[in-house]
Design a protein around this nucleic acid. Structure first.
Length: 524
RNA sequence: CGCGGGGUGGAGCAGUUGGCAGCUCGCAGGGCUCAUAACCCUGAGGUCGUAAGUUCGAGUCUUACCCCCGCAACCA
């Protein structure tokens, strides 16, 4: 049986239009799925929407809709965006799915019976008009961060999950699985800020609104966000349902991708729920940082919000994905700026990659009527060095990927692209042609084509269309020459014919015009 | 003294175990013509936040101080 790979995104809260950060998380997960699929694994990717809660109730009302009507609309919006972005998810879970709701109730009952959940009182600072609790640190000048009005101390009956009971087990797990949390400093953040000072129990129900899953044994309570939301990763696979074959096949998850805003919930509460359910924990939880703007956080009031559609519609999906994956380090905030986007596009995609393909295809046509017969070995040290460099870069790529450093792994691919461009100057094929040094010329062309083939395979998980385009232009049709495994050999291309007139896969953009365009679109 | 991350040529960043300070962009000069004002080469530019210490030798270790950022409990 094939090795399985289960990757998840968070379920997104559809209280508004998805911005580029949401797209980034999803692209990251999708890329990991595609990579592992290419490596031959049996993959399953989950995404979805988190549709309950106070805020949804409020936003729906503002739009003159019932909560269910509103979330139906938003789930469609999400699916449409993921379609546009060619996200290959296998399941889209909605927390309003009846199947999900039933299992959440079941899980709640299990915890209740085990004594992990108990009834208590939730106390906090409450904004009456907003019907929301806030903590002291959330307040702005001591007032409600949403509406600016006074908050009052309130309490209500609520159920709590006994987190304290599991704190030691969680620490032990962290300790025994150093790769569980990526990057590692997030783990220390959790330990120092929350666990070491003494974990507080988590409130898992509310009575102040009812757009949520009811507690079966006490229906005036609805299950509050985290127990409902986090368990989606299990319910989506049919955990505790009549058909749990997917769960048996794919659990535990290999990688769960999240943003830093929900780190605490995924790094503390989620593993504890799993421990309490006596289930194995995921291999890795990858916490990525945020996409910031030059002037700080994206916000509508600053007029600096960039939506994925803006970039995709004008520059294409692959360019958009490339920028996100290349520019956003996992462990630091990345910065989006129109200038940076256009620079990446022109330098990396046009000058380096597209140009390499273009000049190579042109030479094969010019010197050999578009034909490449086969491998003729290494004619000289330059060839040999190039082959070795290629191998090294693939190793480096793998190393970075294993650490979820996607930006670095792309960097390694681009180093290979640059090295290949340099190889053309080192071998000067136009001189070889002039001097009728056919043997050397053949070897040079073969090496260029072979490197392009490898480059295409390496970028395929991140830029599928571009990869296919490259392979098509250099005439690689055989599926055997498109596999991940085929990165291991150098000599298998035989009797291919490149496209007669290669179209540039990326065309240079006018920086001034495009920066202007992006700035305008961000204001709107 | 809450915990953690960081301060490296004009900008953005790499720098595993201490051993001649690198990358991308920008700038200056050159090369080539297969390709896109592209591609390739060379050069200028840094007392690696400040001060002291350990060491034959520190961006890399220790201590103190200055500055920036993240986290700090129910916010998806």
């Amino acid at each position: 049986m094939k090795e399985t790979f289960y990757v998840t995104t968070p379920i997104y809260y559809p209280s508004g239009r998805f911005h580029i950060g949401t797209a980034y998380t999803t692209v990251l997960a999708d890329s990991l799925k595609r990579l592992n699929k290419l490596k031959g694994k049996d993959c399953y990717m989950l995404t979805g929407t988190d549709e309950h809660g106070q805020k949804i109730e409020t936003v729906a009302e503002k739009n003159g809709l019932k909560p269910q009507e509103y979330v139906d609309k938003m789930a469609d919006m999400a699916k449409e965006l993921w379609k546009k972005m060619d996200i290959q998810y296998d399941n889209f879970i909605r927390t309003t799915d009846e199947k999900h709701e039933k299992i959440v109730q079941k899980i709640f009952q299990i915890f209740l019976e085990k004594g992990d959940i108990y009834k208590g009182e939730y106390e906090g600072l409450y904004c009456i008009p907003c019907e929301t609790y806030f903590t002291k640190t959330q307040l702005i000048d001591g007032k409600c961060p949403d509406c600016g009005r006074e908050v009052v101390p309130m309490k209500e009956e609520a159920y709590f999950f006994n987190m304290k009971k599991y704190a030691d087990k969680l620490l032990k797990y962290y300790d025994e699985h150093p790769d569980f949390i990526k990057p590692e400093f997030r783990k220390n953040e959790m330990i120092n800020n929350f666990i070491k000072p003494g974990l507080e129990d988590l409130c898992v129900t509310r009575t102040s609104f009812d757009w949520g899953i009811k507690v079966p044994s006490d229906p005036k309570h609805v299950i509050y966000v985290w127990l409902d939301a986090l368990t989606n990763y299990l319910t989506a696979l049919g955990y505790l349902s009549d058909d749990d074959s997917l769960f048996k096949k794919y659990w535990p998850a290999n990688v769960q991708v999240i943003g830093k805003d929900i780190a605490r919930f995924h790094l503390i509460y989620w593993p504890i729920f799993l421990i309490a359910l006596d289930l194995p924990l995921p291999d890795h939880i990858v916490v990525h940082n945020w996409i910031m703007m030059k002037d700080g956080k994206m916000s509508k009031s600053k007029g600096n919000v960039i939506y994925p559609e803006t970039l995709i519609d004008r520059y294409g999906l692959d360019a958009t994905k490339y920028f996100l994956l290349r520019e956003m380090p996992i462990a630091q905030d990345g910065i989006f700026s129109p200038e940076a986007f256009i620079e990446r596009y022109n330098f990396d995609l046009c000058n380096d990659l597209s140009n390499l393909l273009n000049r190579t295809v042109s030479m094969v046509n010019k010197y050999f009527q578009g034909k490449v017969e086969g491998y003729t070995g290494c004619i000289n040290d330059v060839d040999k060095e190039l082959e070795e460099y290629c191998k090294t870069q693939i190793d480096k790529f793998n190393e970075s990927i294993d650490n979820f450093e996607i930006a670095n792994s792309l960097q390694e691919i681009w180093n290979l692209i640059s090295r290949t461009n340099k190889y053309i100057d080192e071998t000067s094929p136009w001189i070889l042609a002039k001097n009728n040094e056919t043997g050397k010329l053949k070897s040079c062309i073969y090496h260029l084509i072979e490197n392009l083939r490898k480059i295409a395979i390496l970028i395929k998980p991140f830029m599928n269309e571009t990869a296919e385009n490259i392979l098509n232009q250099i005439g690689i049709n055989s599926e055997d020459l498109k596999t991940w495994e085929s990165l291991n050999y150098y000599d298998k291309i035989k009797d291919i014919k490149v496209i007669e007139k290669g179209e540039p896969i990326f065309m240079r953009l006018n920086p001034e015009e495009e920066v202007e365009y992006l700035k305008e679109s961000m204001k709107a």
